[in-house]
Amino acid sequence: MEITHHNKTLSLNSPVVMGILNVTPDSFSDGGQFQQQAHALEHAMQMLADGATILDVGGESTRPGAVDVTQQDEIDRVVPIIKAIRERSDCWISIDTSKAAVMRAAVEAGANIINDVRALREPGALEAAATLQVPVCIMHMQGQPRTMQSAPDYENITQEVAQFLSQRIDACIDAGIVRQNIILDPGYGFGKTLSHNYQLLAQLEAFHEFGLPILAGMSRKSMIYKMLDKTPQDILGGSIACATLAAAKGAQIIRVHDVKETADALKVVAMAVRENHELGE
């Protein structure tokens, strides 16, 4: 399994780490830390050195209750750091946005992947992604960031998330996006209760029916810190446990804050999976 952009190909035969780079003042666990470009660039280079394969740059917080950011403000936040990273590295860069104009500006600056929590449902987003011909990650979310945690409700969460993703896959293909360049994200923490999140983790294998890469992002989220009764910054063990479980269940991309520790954990998972495969041959 692989994704491609122009002459770049990323093999996903073993799970890879996507390092989170929020250039925002209000993200839930690291808001304000990397607003200054020098700090953001230093952190980006450190994540690559620590084992990140993809850097996910975001200029708008999608935590519950987050304030909206204007299109221009978001562009002003993400484009300079994407350009700075691209000048120093040929790594894969993802733009975490739902806005068509930001997608275009970010890809022009050097981004290779669009990571959209709204699954390309905002005005012009689907058309922009199809025109840009980059891999896209489409995520399930019930509601909108400001209100998504008010009263999440499902009859069968895994089935309903799969149905939504199936519809969005069809929409992407109809728009002209190459099927093998579609990445699926069940949307941990986005319009889900604690129980919903762990049901989705327990049943992650269900999403392999699509034959597409799966992204799992649970790092420092409330599904971990609320269960452990700790702060988002104090749940490294819980975040790594979720990452390890997701990778063992076949997720190809693991989106995290703590790159070095997660990369080590994924090497262990990859080794165990490889040995198990060889035993079965």
Rank of each mutant, 00 (worst) to 15 (best):
A128Q: 11
K221A: 00
S89L: 08
E74C: 12
P232A: 08
E127R: 09
T97Q: 07
N276Q: 15
Y188H: 15
N115S: 10
P145N: 14
E108I: 12
I183G: 06
I182P: 13
M45D: 04
V136M: 05
A251D: 02
C137L: 04
G31P: 09
F190L: 06
Q233F: 00
A241H: 02
I20T: 08
G217P: 05
S222L: 01
E74A: 09
I114E: 08
D96E: 02
V57T: 03
L215A: 02
A38F: 00
Q233D: 10
D56M: 06
I54F: 08
A246W: 07
K249N: 13
P123S: 07
T231D: 11
I82R: 05
E160M: 10
Y188N: 13
I224L: 05
E127D: 12
Y188A: 14
E281K: 15
V69W: 07
T231V: 00
Y225M: 02
V134N: 09
A128F: 13
M271L: 14
D185L: 08
S94N: 04
A270V: 09
H196G: 06
D153N: 14
T97H: 05
Q144Y: 15
S89D: 11
T9F: 01
F34R: 05
C137F: 03
H39G: 00
Q37K: 11
I75E: 06
R118H: 13
R121K: 10
F34Q: 00
Q33Y: 10
E209W: 03
P15F: 01
I177T: 02
A100N: 09
H43F: 05
D30S: 11
M223A: 12
P123E: 11
E74N: 12
D174P: 01
H5R: 13
L126R: 09
H140D: 12
D30K: 05
S89T: 12
Q180R: 15
S27I: 03
E2K: 15
Q163Y: 06
Q72L: 14
G237Q: 13
V136K: 06
Q33F: 09
S219T: 01
A129R: 03
G124Q: 14
A125N: 06
M218P: 04
M271D: 12
K221T: 01
Q163T: 12
H196Y: 08
L10P: 14
F207R: 06
K99P: 13
A247I: 12
V134L: 10
A251M: 02
T53H: 12
Q233S: 08
C137N: 03
Q203T: 07
H208Y: 06
D50S: 08
G124A: 12
D116C: 10
G19N: 04
A128N: 11
